[in-house]
């Protein structure tokens, strides 16, 4: 006889051997809070949205921004800010739409796909922000070099002293470190959500996908 058939016979005989929870036990359970990954994904995603929105707002009112306004950089910075805000709205709506679609009564595969899609939206938003910040950075540099008289004076002085190489080296090292820090924050989120929360889900999703080949 097939081993699995033997197991099935035994499995079906055991209906009386499971614990019996009372009405009250079960009632108490429905009052408790869920600790499912969907709940965690929701919380972490909201944190990511808030974090990146905060970053862009925080940058807006700093001294350096006032400095840019004095340099008449609005022509570049205002459109960038408007585009940034529009994209935030777009991602937020997409995130909620996907989140609403997650249903525990779907098939296992559809459920996993909807969860992954929801996460992907947030991931794209974070990636967008990294690119957005880099673009702002480059725009700021462009304005500085183009319009900041003080900087240009420094440059000509450094060049006169034969220190132009040192000047650029320090300058670009600073830019490089800032970028590394940014990408570090991105990777931290990535590791947090994908590494811890979605490891099992990704593995099971791959297993289901494999069945279709």
């Amino acid at each position: 006889m097939d081993e699995l058939e033997l197991l099935k016979k035994d499995w079906q005989k055991q209906d009386n051997s499971y614990p019996k929870l009372s009405y009250d036990d079960i009632y108490k359970m429905i009052l408790k809070k869920s600790s499912s990954i969907v709940k965690w994904i929701f919380i972490i995603s909201i944190i990511e949205f808030v974090f990146w929105s905060f970053i862009s707002v925080a940058f807006r009112d700093t001294e350096s921004m006032k400095h840019f306004r004095e340099l008449h950089g609005e022509n570049i910075l205002v459109p960038i800010a408007i585009i940034g805000f529009g994209i935030l709205i777009y991602f937020f709506i997409a995130f909620f739409k996907n989140y609403k679609r997650i249903s525990v009564t779907d098939s296992a595969k559809a459920l996993m796909e909807n969860i992954l899609k929801t996460r992907r939206t947030v991931k794209q938003y974070v990636a967008f922000n990294i690119i957005y910040l880099i673009v702002c950075f480059i725009a700021a540099l462009f304005i500085e070099f183009d319009k900041n008289q003080e900087l240009n004076d420094h440059l000509s002085q450094a060049s006169a002293n034969g220190e132009i190489f040192k000047f650029y080296a320090i300058f670009f090292a600073t830019v490089f470190i800032a970028l590394v820090l940014l990408i570090g924050v991105f990777l931290l989120f990535y590791w947090l959500v994908y590494g811890i929360l979605l490891k099992g889900l990704n593995r099971n999703y791959k297993e289901l996908k494999k069945l279709e080949i």
Partner: peptide, 16 residues
């Protein structure tokens, strides 16, 4: 309906 929700929770939603 319980089979579906139960398995989905075990496979996908539950954090071991």
């Amino acid at each position: 309906w319980m089979y579906r929700v139960g398995l989905n929770t075990a496979i996908t939603l539950y954090r071991k």
